[in-house]
Design a binder for these strands. Sequence first.
DNA 1: GGAATCCTTTGACATTTGTCAAATAATCAA
DNA 2: TTGATTATTTGACAAATGTCAAAGGATTCC
Lengths: 188, 188
Amino acid sequence: MIPQFLKRLQEFSPLSEATQAELQQYLSVVEIPKGEFILKHHEVCRYIFYIEKGFARQYYFRDGKEITEWFAGTHEFCFSISSYFDATPSNLLIEAVEESTVIRLHRDGILQLSKTNPEIAQLALGMFARSLKFSQLRTESILFQSARDRYLHLLETKPYVIQKVSLAHIASFLGISQETLSRIRAKI
Amino acid sequence: MIPQFLKRLQEFSPLSEATQAELQQYLSVVEIPKGEFILKHHEVCRYIFYIEKGFARQYYFRDGKEITEWFAGTHEFCFSISSYFDATPSNLLIEAVEESTVIRLHRDGILQLSKTNPEIAQLALGMFARSLKFSQLRTESILFQSARDRYLHLLETKPYVIQKVSLAHIASFLGISQETLSRIRAKI
DNA sequence: GGAATCCTTTGACATTTGTCAAATAATCAA
DNA sequence: TTGATTATTTGACAAATGTCAAAGGATTCC
């Protein structure tokens, strides 16, 4: 379970055996029951989370409404990158949609080690780079794709997401009203 | 001119005197005439650019149309972060809207040094962090603000931008049609 | 099993924004 | 300056999406 986590982590940037061993001491595993929070509102995000088993939804509040930022399925990462790196209270909440087993990598493992270990610094850079790419893709999808195309794209690339969460959550992720999503679905 | 550049660079992350001296050898200054490109289409972005004097527009093509990503005024930075860090051909073009004096920091100065100098790695992280924040703010403005509010916000925060470039470019930055922008302006 | 609750769909209508076409205004170059 | 080019505005209409309200469905809990 831990070895696989370390392997996935290297999608961001490769790590030597020595660095992997160093990181081990910052790892822990927790069980989060359905409906509980992996990251609570206003809590500093002290860990990078890896969903070993389960499913999570990341969202924030805007004008009193829940806005879904993204989802994390089995063997995916989630964390509040800004809260994690700046140690500021997180606006992002991460909720376990179903009972989940989560591997956590403590921020000290990244922030302290990155000052001396360039591999870790590269890892952090890789994480930022991925988040940036993701954010830019999302901006472009909102700017250039219709609500219908965005839904079809989600359906194609992440069909399991639609099974796991309510349509209200999917609508808020797509940036449309629930009624519009319902009408899109009605016409295939 | 160079000292001020180094000072601005430290908005991303502080740099020791020694590191600043190391970076010096990677700096150069160029004059770009009006209408010429600071970064050409499909060129690898080999530098971080700093507009010592002048004004630049960053844009890309989508469905044959120019989409303005952002502007860089005097004493601001611009570069294609993805092309710079990955050495991939840039989709982003950077055009000098007026004659510009540009200080360039070569990517080797960041990429090579960051492997041994943690200050440089932190600098790179700071740049990613800023870009990510910018990207997320843009996503939110598109999701939650009307075209009118986005225009008013630009007018408030960056009034000089509206003086320098055509309304077509501003419209493409705001993600709206030129006609809609014209109508917004007609009603104050 | 049935009431209560939550989730989803549907209808009617308003609002925002886009598109196409044309008119007007501003700028540039000879 | 004048004609050509480019930039901006305006009009008419269409398309996409939001909002409010209500009706069905599904689920849960006792």
